[in-house]
Simulated scan of single mutants.
Amino acid sequence: MMVPCIRLDLDCAAICKAALDYVSRDSRYAEEILQQCARICRDCGQECQKHEAQHCKECAEACFKCAEACEQYQSA
């Protein structure tokens, strides 16, 4: 039951690390990575919201905050 959620969590962590790497070196692809990061973080947050465990709720909140940060960084 939690396998899809865990896989999405791992995808989310990986894209967040990649986004940080691209942004930190001012890559010309940073904006594209940030768009994908925001999308994956939102998907992850929505998946985590489906579960009652406290760590899932905290994960969902963190994912939504990260998605917002990616979107704000793109607009800057």
Rank of each mutant, 00 (worst) to 15 (best):
S75L: 06
Q46F: 02
D21H: 13
A67T: 13
E52C: 01
S75G: 08
K17C: 00
Y73M: 02
Q49R: 13
E31K: 02
E31N: 03
R39S: 09
I40Y: 04
Q74N: 00
C12D: 06
S24I: 02
Q46I: 02
A30L: 01
E47Q: 02
Y73A: 11
C70L: 13
L10C: 15
Q74M: 00
G45H: 05
K17H: 06
C56Q: 08
L10Y: 11
M2R: 05
Q46V: 03
I33N: 04
L20F: 06
E61P: 09
V3N: 15
Q36P: 00
A53E: 03
H51T: 13
R39T: 13
C12V: 14
S75C: 11
D9C: 08
A62P: 06
Q36S: 09
K65A: 13
Q72H: 09
G45Y: 04
I15H: 05
K57C: 11
E52L: 01
E52M: 01
A18G: 03
D21N: 05
C5I: 08
A19W: 02
A13T: 04
S27C: 02
H51P: 06
Q35K: 05
C37M: 14
I40S: 01
H51K: 09
A13P: 00
D43N: 05
A18C: 01
A53I: 11
C48S: 12
C44L: 08
A76E: 03
C63R: 12
H51Y: 07
A30E: 03
C37G: 09
E58D: 10
A19G: 01
C5V: 10
E58T: 05
C70P: 06
E61R: 11
L34Y: 06
D11G: 07
E32T: 10
E32N: 03
K57I: 09
V23D: 00
A76T: 12
E32G: 15
C56N: 12
A13Q: 03
M1Q: 09
K57Q: 12
L34A: 10
C16R: 08
G45F: 02
C48H: 10
E71Y: 04
C41V: 08
M2H: 15
G45C: 00
C66Q: 02
E52R: 08
S27E: 07
C63N: 02
H55Y: 10
H55Q: 10
A67N: 11
Q54Y: 05
C63T: 02
S24Y: 04
C12A: 13
A53M: 13
R39I: 12
A60Q: 04
P4N: 08
R7M: 05
E71K: 10
S27R: 13
C70Q: 14
V23R: 14
Q35I: 15
I15F: 04
L10G: 07
M1R: 08
A18M: 11
Q36K: 09
Q74E: 00
A19Y: 12
A67G: 02
E61Q: 11
D11T: 09
K57G: 11
K65R: 10
Q72F: 03
L20C: 01
C59Y: 03
E68D: 01
A30H: 01
P4C: 15
A62H: 13
A18K: 08
C63K: 07
C12Y: 03
C66T: 14
F64H: 12
M1P: 05
D9F: 00
H55M: 11
A69Q: 07
G45E: 03
C12K: 11
S75T: 14
L20I: 05
K17T: 14
A30D: 02
S75R: 11
A13V: 04
A19I: 01
L8R: 12
Q35F: 15
E32K: 14
D9A: 00
I40Q: 05
